[in-house]
Design a binder for these strands. Sequence first.
DNA 1: AGGCTTGTCTACCATTTGGGAGAGATTTTG
DNA 2: CAAAATCTCTCCCAAATGGTAGACAAGCCT
Lengths: 198, 198
Amino acid sequence: MTGATSDRILDAALELFGTRGYEATSLDTLAKQLNIRKQTVLYWFPTKEAVLGAVIERSANELAEAFEAGLEGAGEGWAKVEAVVRAVFRLAARRPELLGLVREVARLGPPAATKMIGVLDPLVQRASSFLEAEMDAGRMRRHNPRLLLLAIYSTVIGMVTEVEVLRALGEEPSARSLVRRRADVLELLRSALMTEEA
Amino acid sequence: MTGATSDRILDAALELFGTRGYEATSLDTLAKQLNIRKQTVLYWFPTKEAVLGAVIERSANELAEAFEAGLEGAGEGWAKVEAVVRAVFRLAARRPELLGLVREVARLGPPAATKMIGVLDPLVQRASSFLEAEMDAGRMRRHNPRLLLLAIYSTVIGMVTEVEVLRALGEEPSARSLVRRRADVLELLRSALMTEEA
DNA sequence: AGGCTTGTCTACCATTTGGGAGAGATTTTG
DNA sequence: CAAAATCTCTCCCAAATGGTAGACAAGCCT
């Protein structure tokens, strides 16, 4: 049964890095959470940075899979956008730490961010050219596709991870409210993106 | 000439907290940046947390002023939205650390976030009821005003602070590109918010 | 002048940090 | 079975962390 421990380490690290942050999480804290010693962590991963790297790689792949799965049977045009957004919200409900990690890694910058971007870049490219094609076909309003993507990214990540801002807006971060937020985001996106043709 | 040193401390702290992050900035780093000793920092502020608190208070007020200034001569309806977005982008160009701090504080959560929200809450309320009034008057599409605000917040903060994501999208974070981003955000917001009546 | 206040400093301190060295137990392999 | 590999541990460490205590100089007040 190889890898059981290192997997548990990555699970815990994902959660801690994604919620408290990377610098704010010490190897001792991480180890204590698993009832093992710090040196066991350092046996499986040579440095703390290596732990982060492994967490990023696993998470980025899981994210990519979730996206692909969301696109699986999805139709065309708006249905595709909706499918992706739904996939992300589903992920946010089941594994909120994953989205938290994305937020954290974007903040940390290189080399961590570079690694995650490397895995997710193909998806970004696909999304970008999808949007462009839709615009060319006149099915979506014309916008700068890259910045549109950033807007969608920021909004969705915000809806899912900005706990404090949400609270300030009087939105309790519960599962039920997440569903409502999803509906609102879709509605908002729809009116931002789609031309009139239902 | 009272306060000169403590002001310099807050300036440096704002920049460091807003870019590297709070935990990643030690009192020694902060002091070294100013060519003073750590103890001088601790003379002006009893703890590191107190430095953060003071930075937040000053920054939140500055933010609030910038908003107010943006609203000064602004007209009604869409012109008002545009004025606020322009004000934020102007701020992002002149004092990028300020927006960085907002992002960081939202991540840190209470008590830091609570403090910043406390100062900015009146503005949020005003914005929220403004949007609601516009919707009631049929000048804007009906959306959940709170989540609409969060979407705008996330998007603008993202456009301004998500350096790595921007880079991944092939957008170099320069002054010129910031102007272009502003134009794109406005265009995007306009089509998301406004009903057809231009 | 002489005492108080203000501001910056040096000298420490306890704790925590990420990590090194290697012992000891268990499992795998020849 | 013995040797080697695998895994987790204890013991240690140098550097960095936030913070305390108090020396020392400069200015202010009477």
